[in-house]
Nucleic acid binder design. Structure first.
Length: 420
RNA sequence: GGAGAGGUGACCGAGUUGGUUGAAGGUGCGCGCCUGCUAAGCGUGUGUGGGGGUUAAACUUCACCGAGGGUUCGAAUCCCUCCCUCUCCGCCA
């Protein structure tokens, strides 16, 4: 959420930000609602002050045995007016708040403007592996080694739901543990394991709602949502709190299943593990003071990169252009891992700085050394999602006979198994 | 799911015949003093958000005692709905 004061004073900037992110919000209406709300608030306050003042006199009069029925009668009118104003005010306020929640975050000045084609290359690590044979894709390799349970899993739920099996299940579990351990012991994150079912307020806090309701799985009976990422539960951990400054920074790593309806993306990258409705991910989240968030963003990018490097997977890093940037993010780096069998890069991690956008929505603040209360900055990054890591890994480490060599760092996590 | 208890400021905890209680008291924390030692004492200050006001403060006003409604001239206090926590029972892993 943006600060309404900022919006009032920077209408052009906000308008441009909306356009750059291809959002549709009626900024003009929001400003009108804002004005209307302010006026109503003023009228209400004035009348209430009067009401409070007189109401205090009544017990005084009674004490002195003076008849107050006249005065009370008078006040009945004011009471009615107060009620009417209050109703109107809360109606306008609700409308205003709802509209305000639909304004996206403003992108950082270094973010390229435009659609996906404007995503900017930052760097790459390693190089596309060369093979003496034609590399197979993950579907063929999985079939050959009995790693996945695709058809039967979709029987259970539907298309877009997958199962891991045999050494494939082992490998996926190994990846999760390896990544968790890496972030905990090498990067100093604290692990949290939180509910994957969250309420509406929580989903609003991180910015999934109201905009993306159609992309979320919802349990209608209880009005709960399945999280699309652990970011949601972890970021909202401090919702509504004012943290003492000594509690900052906080760095969390959390493994969770993620649920995404992927509404409107049917037919795109649907093969195997590429785009699925449920997958596992290890997520890193940080709460920091504003002045350090951009330095921390770089650190987090490196944290995600470290995993790929440890696994020996070639990747490149991109800065997402405004049109590709998520609603709540100010800047996002995407890591794209090379999948030799598929012959393309797969988005495997997003590392984002939300600045105070989520903190405002979820009201996550801290008391600074000067005793002022300020919003924290929140950041998160995938570190990493397992399905595409799985793809890149088996495609990269495949042998001509279709077997897969386990990279050294994962061997201990596979109980010494060196080949799939 | 059934029965009961409860949700007040950073924390603990008063406040239920509605009215100087935005909230006693305590703890913690800030500042000052005293004293000097493994600490204590004394004084003083200490919520958030919105509006007005100021160069900035001061000051002023409104709202907030789980959330939302209602009753009333007036509600933390009464009524209704919902949420959450705890205890016991049942059920299930």
């Amino acid at each position: 959420m943006l600060d309404i004061k900022f919006i009032r004073e920077n209408v052009d900037i906000v308008q441009r930000a909306i356009k750059n992110k291809n959002e549709k919000c009626d900024l003009k209406m929001i400003l009108e609602l804002d004005k209307k709300k302010q006026k109503l608030q003023f009228d209400y306050d004035t009348l209430r002050a009067e009401q409070n003042r007189v109401s205090k006199q009544i017990p005084e009069l009674k004490k002195q045995n003076i008849n107050a029925t006249e005065l009370i009668k008078e006040m009945q009118n004011i009471s009615k007016k107060v009620k009417a104003l209050s109703t109107e005010l809360s109606e306008v306020s609700v409308k205003f708040e709802n509209e305000l929640l639909c304004i996206p975050n403003i992108s950082h000045k270094e973010v390229p403007i435009g659609g996906e084609s404007e995503n900017k290359f930052i760097k790459e690590w390693g190089s596309k592996k060369t093979f003496t044979f034609k590399p197979k894709d993950h579907l063929v390799l999985s079939e050959k080694n009995d790693l996945l349970e695709l058809k039967r899993a979709s029987k259970l739920t539907g298309t877009g739901f997958v199962g891991y099996k045999n050494k494939g299940a082992l490998l996926e579990r190994a990846l999760i543990n390896f990544m968790l351990d890496f972030h905990i012991w090498k990067h100093g994150y604290t692990e949290v394991s939180l509910p994957v079912l969250v309420n509406r307020k929580t989903m609003i806090g991180t910015g999934q709602l109201p905009k993306l309701e159609d992309d979320m799985y919802r349990i209608e009976q209880d009005d709960l949502f399945l999280v699309p990422t652990a970011e949601v539960s972890v970021t909202n951990l401090f919702a509504g709190e004012i943290l003492p400054v000594k509690m900052l920074p906080q760095k969390f790593v959390s493994y969770s299943p993620c649920f995404r309806r992927e509404a409107g993306s049917y037919g795109k990258d649907t093969k195997g593990l590429q785009r699925i409705h449920q997958f596992n991910k290890v997520e890193i989240v940080r709460f920091v003071q504003p002045e350090s968030s951009y330095q921390v963003l770089e650190e987090m990018l490196k944290d995600a990169e470290d995993i790929l490097q440890a696994l020996g997977l070639h990747y490149r890093a991109m800065t997402l252009a405004t049109g590709d940037l998520s609603f709540a993010s100010a800047i996002t780096y995407d890591l794209e891992v090379w999948a030799p069998g598929a012959g393309k890069y797969l988005e495997i991690s997003s590392v984002s700085n939300f600045e105070d956008f989520q903190a405002r929505r979820a009201s996550i603040r801290y008391r600074d050394i000067d005793d002022k209360v300020r919003f924290v900055h929140t950041l998160n990054g995938s570190g990493l999602a397992t399905p595409r890591t799985f793809i890149a890994l088996i495609e990269t480490y495949q042998n001509e006979d279709g077997s897969v060599t386990v990279p050294d760092v994962l061997v201990p996590y596979l109980s010494g198994l060196k080949k799939l």
